[in-house]
Write a protein that binds this DNA or RNA. Sequence first.
DNA 1: AGCAGTTTGTGAAAACATTAACGACTTCCT
DNA 2: AGGAAGTCGTTAATGTTTTCACAAACTGCT
Lengths: 216, 216
Amino acid sequence: MDIEQTKIPQATAKRLPLYYRFLNNLHSQGKLRVSSKELSEAVKVDSATIRRDFSYFGALGKKGYGYNVEYLLSFFRKTLDQDETTKVALVGVGNLGTAFLNYNFTKNNNTRIEIAFDADQKRVGTEVGGVQVEHVDDLEEKINDTAVAILTVPSSEAQPMTDRLVKAGVSAILNFTPARITVPPHVRVHHIDLSIELQALVYFLKHYPLEEEQEG
Amino acid sequence: MDIEQTKIPQATAKRLPLYYRFLNNLHSQGKLRVSSKELSEAVKVDSATIRRDFSYFGALGKKGYGYNVEYLLSFFRKTLDQDETTKVALVGVGNLGTAFLNYNFTKNNNTRIEIAFDADQKRVGTEVGGVQVEHVDDLEEKINDTAVAILTVPSSEAQPMTDRLVKAGVSAILNFTPARITVPPHVRVHHIDLSIELQALVYFLKHYPLEEEQEG
DNA sequence: AGCAGTTTGTGAAAACATTAACGACTTCCT
DNA sequence: AGGAAGTCGTTAATGTTTTCACAAACTGCT
């Protein structure tokens, strides 16, 4: 069942949710068809790359016509498991955690933050973005079968909290702390490091000149 | 002056701030030397990749010894222009914007958020994370020579605000909105799309199995 | 029906990135 | 001083991703 899927390049897989979202936009605008060129302009991905990406799933388009929005959408819905919602836990209801909780994830999305944890007694028992905040001491007890965790704690807490999450059975962690956490090989970690993203942007700005600004 | 620099692969450039941060940690721990193997374990990057990355800047290490932490650090400081602080503006002081403002960027960092803008009169005039919040109507007037902007506005505002920022002379934008913004060719944009990161993680979790969990 | 115009899907090439492997050199122990 | 152990810097091999470019096939106009 996953035989074909495994072959999809990671770079492609990362773009799928992006495509999915824009197709949804088009669909709600009542658009019936779309070409790789149009889509390219909207998502800022080369049109050949888009066609290549789609082609991993078979021949989804029609020559001389483009792609049928509804068909493509229903195809992606299946592929991205949009029907089956993945439960997510969030640990650390600071500013960043709150931002996540308030984010409108339910729209066009296969993930839902089911529960949040924080160490601050003032936050426990409140509801943020429709999600109940529990005390972090109850993590093991209340996290149940949640497979994915978003880690938005202070970096000193990152590794201890990771260890607890792993013990509690979490199999993927989205780590927003600057700490590079250590996990067993069966646990998947993605790092999003805001400080590094900003520094990298500055580095590119200074060292990788783009086209000159056009005067007039 | 940039002749050599231009050849550094983008993938390497993205890792430089990460290396820099960990070297700082080591230095403040009083460590004098470090090997690519040790560093590899700390930052979770293959040691051969680390050696390759460093080698773009010349021979920074010593065979049989490793790298001198202080020397490496002073080298990176120059390379990453740590002495020269880049001014950053933040637009949209919501949860995510607030998270950024409260982030301790000044430590080990070549970037500083100098000014923030928001449309909400209640926030204007306050100080968040030591940064003054101005009304977004005054953006053009007060943004001055700021080169980089962090965009944390609602996605409906993304393109209009981008157009204003570009007109005001900003040359790089870190875009946290789900909108894919359009800019002239001389402006650099990096997208960080929280919803997509989460969806991609879930997709990898389901379709790219890692090593099986070890029982016992 | 026929033809000009459009757009896909993909083979082949190019560009980019990671990893293995090892010679050369350094350290440090005895 | 000599040799075992350690580590870099780099060549070559491998893997991944993007892009080009075009035949094939469809659309839609007249």
